[in-house]
């Protein structure tokens, strides 16, 4: 394959809309494609893709491959992989971008191995060297304690981008692009695993990923009960409750609350941490927050190196008074 060209984003839609991850990937892809002087395409997988295809063009795509098949209506890893592999082999892109979402965590490595190429995993930033047309990616390693700059040695060069590090472009409905139907042949027997039951555990109310304010609790809370206090505070602020891995591992809250490297990536306006030490693995999930506020009794704790505002004190004294003051201020 000597004629590889362009950037291919592997995107998806949710509820008939282009997903936010896909919009973010188009921002990264647009820049890379412009630097290369090549085309930006997006491959969308699903059953019906008219609306998301048009949205993809307004968010920066030059071309949309609408990969439709009844079997793609629901996510199934093996079938999605087969469709993505077929698309990559046919399009022969120079660079492939995919979101490091829950699905991307399994799709991206398996796709790279199938194509016999490398994957730059969990990237915070990508750039292309216009001369050599190589992709360079910055990605956190050692739990975020260090950043590695990596280069992919084989084409296509694949990067999995961490959610919420790129901002979607301003949509421009006057942008012109081409929508190409890409039919795939899928055999249902290729699906080697089957989902037999789905269990929801997420909290009611504002979703953690979308909340403007998040109040998170950690190991220092000492048990599940204090999370009720955090919930009261979060409700007053119209926000959601999160947790560190230590709180999840202790069984105080379900895993869907976890913020961090192996949990959710969130970018709230205000992130209030209570009794969280601020290990790099936790900060990996919240470093995109506009303002971090720390309440912790240990002045030496790493969280004070990350926070904009902090109170050094026992949460049992600080949080009730803080909550009362918030109640007075926000309800007056």
């Amino acid at each position: 394959m000597a004629d590889e060209s362009g950037v291919l984003v592997l995107g998806d839609s949710t509820g008939g809309e282009l997903s936010s991850m896909s919009r973010e990937l188009l921002t990264a892809g647009r820049k890379a494609a412009d630097d290369l002087g090549e085309e930006l395409a997006i491959g969308l997988l699903g059953a019906t893709l008219d609306q998301p295809s048009q949205q993809a063009i307004s968010y920066g795509a030059d071309k949309v491959y609408a990969v439709t098949h009844p079997q793609l209506a629901q996510y199934q890893v093996d079938l999605y992989l087969a469709a993505m592999e077929a698309l990559c082999r046919d399009v022969s892109p120079r660079i492939v971008l995919i979101g490091r979402t829950n699905e991307g965590r399994e799709l991206a490595p398996r796709l790279a191995f199938r194509l016999g190429v490398g994957l730059a995993q969990d990237c915070l930033e990508i750039s292309v060297d216009a001369g050599s047309k190589t992709l360079l990616a910055n990605r956190p390693v050692y739990g975020g304690n260090a950043i590695a700059v990596v280069r992919c040695n084989y084409t296509p060069q694949i990067a999995a981008i961490r959610p919420k590090v790129y901002e979607p472009l301003e949509p421009d409905s006057s942008r012109q692009g081409q929508v190409v139907s890409f039919p795939v042949e899928l055999d249902p027997s290729q699906a080697r695993s089957q989902v037999v039951n789905v269990v929801e555990e997420a909290a009611e109310g504002v979703k953690l990923e979308d909340a403007r304010v998040v109040v998170s609790g950690g190991r220092g809370l000492g048990g599940p009960e204090p999370f009720k206090d955090l919930e009261t505070l979060a409700n007053l602020l119209g926000g959601a409750v999160g947790a560190s891995r230590a709180a999840v591992d202790s069984g105080w809250v379900p895993s869907s609350y976890q913020v961090g490297l192996t949990g959710k990536t969130i970018t709230p306006e205000v992130y209030i941490t209570v009794a969280i030490s601020g290990a790099s693995q936790h900060m990996a999930g919240c470093s995109g927050a506009k303002v971090i506020v720390a309440i912790n009794k240990d002045a030496e704790s790493n969280i004070f190196k990350e926070a904009r505002y902090g109170v050094v004190g026992d949460w049992e004294q600080v949080v009730p008074a803080f909550t009362e003051a918030v109640r007075e201020l926000t309800q007056s």
Binding site: I295, F304, K305, Y309, V311, G313, D314, A321, F322, E324
Partner: peptide, 17 residues
Amino acid sequence: CEIIEGDDAADAGRQLA
């Protein structure tokens, strides 16, 4: 980091708000 002080921990919580 701006450390918010108070007369005691509870007061620091109020000052933070």
